[in-house]
Write a protein that binds this DNA or RNA. Structure first.
Lengths: 231, 231
DNA sequence: ATAAATAATTGATATTATTCAATATTTCGA
DNA sequence: TCGAAATATTGAATAATATCAATTATTTAT
């Protein structure tokens, strides 16, 4: 993010997500009263797995890495979140804790929204709730893909999945890779950092990817997809 | 399931899920018009991954195994669904296909509900939608647990997770295990059938579980949890 | 600009888990 | 009830992957 002069009023927020468009002005005003906006510096932890979840978070501007922590001090990277995405939506119901951790990959402006207020809106406004459900549908599909990748593919396929995900056009790739380490890439694939490095070198030698400093560029996407499918 | 004389009218259905309790009588009547009830025999496929999803399914009475299929002809078992649970809820929005397959573990009575009608109810009734979101919150947590299990644990920990899940009181265990093969147990853990068999024998020898025909009984739950945690 | 800290790379080895093969057991239909 | 088919079990060989150790490159803080 670059601009911190961005308005903090929900009514004319340009970074708003699809679901907020379903709110009527009075509801937007209501939610505006119930939120605070906070700036997280690059590297700061935005939410911590297991911690008490007082708020649902919304990225008003920034880039965030979402990951699961395991007791053995290893992480599983789940996804990269961009501006206009929620963090910790699922803490709204159920247990009062965050199911994952999130760290700012760049300076990020985050809206903290009171869970109670969000719940009220969900109950009052079915259109709003439906948009949230839409989000959950897409989210579930993504998690199933992760499970398929981890459950049945071996290293090569898993790394291919990671690269295909990270190289998606929807990310500013140069930017993104400059903020990710080999360990991050390994943690997306759930392989050791050393294996990630070795496999990346292999892919480079076969002309499937190009390593330009930290940036990874896919040269032969078809073959990478092939590797992903083969597992 | 035992009784097929069960009423098929949503208004006095005793197998209804929490969310339907949020519907007003006219809405229940509406949904009653928009559903059909079908009996699936044991072993029959209720929904197929990738197939066109015309309906959202609801188990009015039965027991169902939900699993992901991978191209290499291997399956990942996700969960066992019981009476009053939805199948394929996420096909309601997004792509018009089922993200997973489901098979009847016993003769099961399934309600097929028109997606369009369900969408209407979600838009009209925020309380109903909120209950669905509650379900998604719990569902997400479960999927994260699966990801943690697959991503970082090795065979022992993964099998322990499977056994702890399957031996939960919420299932009729004798019944359940009689319907699951070693392959099923392996597919929950994403390990080979042979490995599952070997590890079960190990656990038996160490007095952690007891093998009684097809039924598996946990003797030393504390140690099994230990194994699960250690990974 | 430089030293210290961190991250990336590579090779050798050890561990983990699958596959293949052979045998035993159970289930199921005629 | 019998025999075929499916499922379960066990062992040995092989493959996949992590770990450990050493080295090089990069980043960061002074």
């Amino acid at each position: 993010m670059n601009d911190f002069t961005e308005s903090t009023n929900c009514l004319d927020c340009t970074k708003s997500s699809a679901c907020f468009k379903k709110l009527i002005p009075s509801e937007l005003e209501f939610i505006n009263q119930k939120k605070t906006q906070i700036l997280y510096k690059k590297g700061e932890t935005i939410c911590k797995q297991g911690a008490f979840s007082s708020y649902v978070l919304f990225i008003s501007d920034g880039l965030v890495k979402l990951y699961l922590e395991s007791p053995n001090n290893k992480n599983i990277n789940i996804k990269i979140l961009k501006t206009s995405e929620f963090i910790g939506l699922s803490s709204i119901y159920g247990e009062n804790i965050y199911n994952y951790s999130a760290v700012a990959l760049e300076d990020s402006s985050i809206c903290l929204i009171e869970k109670e207020s969000l719940r009220k809106l969900l109950n009052d406004n079915g259109n709003f709730a439906s948009e949230i459900i839409k989000w959950y549908c897409a989210n579930e599909k993504q998690l199933f893909n992760k499970i398929k990748s981890l459950g049945h593919k071996q290293m090569h396929g898993r790394l291919a999945d990671t690269l295909l995900y990270l190289c998606d056009e929807s990310f500013n790739q140069k930017e993104l890779f400059s903020k990710l380490s080999r360990q991050d890439i390994a943690d997306f694939s759930c392989i050791s950092t050393e294996s990630a490095v070795r496999l990346l070198a292999e892919l480079k030698n076969e002309g499937i990817i190009k390593l330009e400093g930290k940036h990874i560029r896919i040269i032969d996407k078809a073959r990478l997809i092939e590797i992903s499918k083969k597992g």
